[in-house]
């Protein structure tokens, strides 16, 4: 494991921890998109189904369990514990527009026509668009809690760092993963606007407000 991948996984973990702490501390899930969290839960469940038959390492297994359980815990916090704080009226992105194209892409572009490979490909495409409801919600409200902004930033950094990881692995191991590489490029592009505003506002101590 190289440094890019390790830091990527850490920032991915950090993003989830930030989100859980925010919801618990403020006893509110205001500003957090339930739809995005639901899509991530779907991403993890469809991708990590291999936990039962494909052992990689203790690290890998531990992280898979962490991502699945922590995301389902967020769904629980939003749906049960702090339900009144979440306003579905501003979380209006149609998730069919992400799920359907991901399913089509998974059927066309995959590593083989087995249930496992199709689900894996589906999860990769789905992940590339899963942040859209959250970004859409941010655009509707125009501003966000600092922690929500840090959450999205940490998530963007995670995806960005996987790109140098794949370049590094291509150079040192000759390993190629075109599906994940392409999906990650798309995903990082979706964050570019957000990164720009984060840099120009949040980095200078200002409130996150859209122009």
């Amino acid at each position: 494991m190289n440094i890019f991948r390790f830091l990527a996984d850490l920032s991915h973990m950090a993003s989830i921890v930030i989100l859980i702490l925010q919801i618990r501390k403020t006893k509110s899930a205001a500003g957090v998109s339930y739809k995005t969290q639901f899509l991530y839960a779907l991403v993890f469940v469809t991708r990590y189904i291999d936990i039962f038959f494909h052992y990689v390492s203790l690290y890998n297994t531990f992280m898979k369990i962490f991502f699945v359980t922590s995301t389902i815990y967020i769904l629980y916090l939003m749906r049960v514990q702090y339900k009144p704080s979440h306003d579905p009226n501003i979380d209006t992105f149609r998730i069919e527009y992400i799920i359907a194209p991901s399913a089509v892409l998974a059927l066309i572009i995959n590593h083989g026509y087995t249930l496992y490979e199709i689900l894996w490909s589906f999860s990769v495409w789905l992940e590339s668009g899963a942040i859209l409801p959250q970004l859409f919600m941010l655009q509707r409200t125009g501003e966000a809690e600092t922690l929500t902004v840090h959450y999205i930033f940490a998530l963007g950094i995670y995806r960005l760092l996987y790109i140098p990881n794949w370049i590094y692995r291509y150079v040192t191991e000759g390993r190629v993963e075109p599906i994940a590489f392409l999906a990650s490029l798309i995903q990082t592009a979706l964050y570019s606007d957000f990164f720009y505003i984060y840099y120009t506002k949040v980095m200078q101590g200002k409130k996150f407000e859209l122009p």
Partner: peptide, 10 residues
């Protein structure tokens, strides 16, 4: 590696 899928990442 290369052609064969090797999903060892998260």
């Amino acid at each position: 590696s290369g052609d064969k899928a090797d999903h060892d990442e998260l």
